[in-house]
Design a protein around this nucleic acid. Structure first.
Lengths: 185, 185
DNA sequence: GATTCGATCGGAGGGATAGTTA
DNA sequence: TCTAACTATCCCTCCGATCGAA
């Protein structure tokens, strides 16, 4: 993966060509550029050409359950994460909250399992600001966007990553996916 | 400026389209995308095509000049402003820069007129950080994204709004549009 | 005296790291 | 005691209201 810096206008142009929630910049650009690469007038620009590339390998329906589930989860969550929005965040806290929000959206019902995750004496997650605030000093509670959950935010990036890993695990992700999630931060 | 993550393939594709030493990703992409953006075979690739989506209502060619101009300007600029992106900014400074960037994009050639706008002793706009910094103390110069211009940032919101109004006027907007622009902040 | 302008300084957010505890 | 895990202090940067200056 490479990071490139582009201006607002280009960014908007790319974003406005998103064809599904969570589509990555690469995916969008591949579509746009490949159409352009042919000097031909674009025929059917709406076709989600790129997408297909990714899901090339047919999902093996016969495979063991765990694998299938993992795949579902994976797709679910990564669709909820908007890479561009992530990249735009000023600091790790913003990304942290965005990722958690995506996980919540993808696992609304089981999400309360994260309440089990906590530090030695501080709580990491709670259903109210107060609860978190009272479990330590300067915990800097923040609400996970569009959810009834709050997170403790006063920690270094390393710990935030650990927290993400724990959340991923609690929600049933395998190591690989947990790693991917962790690395979003 | 935005950072986006793209895969190697896309990256190579972009790089290989460089047309001069030091060309930025934005510049390359602008070329590539504007060719692509028109569903038609590219006629004049330099046209800010993206804009068209929004400008559904045909521009009345027969109307008086002033009106036409105002309309063009209006469309140009408001298309360049992404409301969501604006809303996402943490503070007024972020929005301020975004709006100015949009104005720059819409009026690249005349934009140097803003250099006339200044305070009693401080400069408000300049072509370099240094210039601004030296014109006062703690002016907090910031580059207007994707432009060679810098703005003074150390002021209250009211003054930032005034600055926007002045810029809008300098670029030929009427009171109404200037007001709209000011209110974006 | 009224108004405009400048830039200081308090406040908030972020997060590395020093310090603490198990 | 030594170490690993965890906490929260504290420093830094960014904002922008406020108040003194012109």
């Amino acid at each position: 993966m490479k990071n490139i810096e582009i201006d607002e206008e280009i960014y908007q142009c790319i974003v406005s060509n998103t064809q599904f929630i969570g589509e990555s910049a690469s995916s969008i650009l591949r579509r746009l550029l490949s159409i352009e690469a042919e000097t031909q007038p674009s025929t059917s620009p709406k076709e989600p050409v790129v997408t297909k590339t990714v899901s090339q390998e047919p999902v093996p329906v016969t495979k063991p359950v765990e694998v299938t589930v993992a795949k579902d989860i994976n797709e679910t969550v990564f669709n909820y994460v908007n890479k561009e929005e992530l990249a735009m965040q000023r600091g790790a806290v913003g990304r942290f909250l965005l990722i958690l929000a995506a996980l919540y959206r993808g696992h609304t019902t089981q999400f309360s399992e994260v309440l089990e995750i906590s530090g030695r004496d501080r709580l990491y997650f709670a259903k109210s600001e107060k609860e978190l605030a009272e479990s330590g000093s300067s915990t800097k509670p923040r609400q996970i966007p569009d959810s009834p959950f709050w997170v403790m935010t006063n920690s270094n990036t390393t710990r935030k990553k650990m927290m993400l890993t724990k959340v991923a695990n609690a929600l049933g992700y395998n190591e690989d996916d947990a790693e991917k999630i962790r690395e979003l931060l």
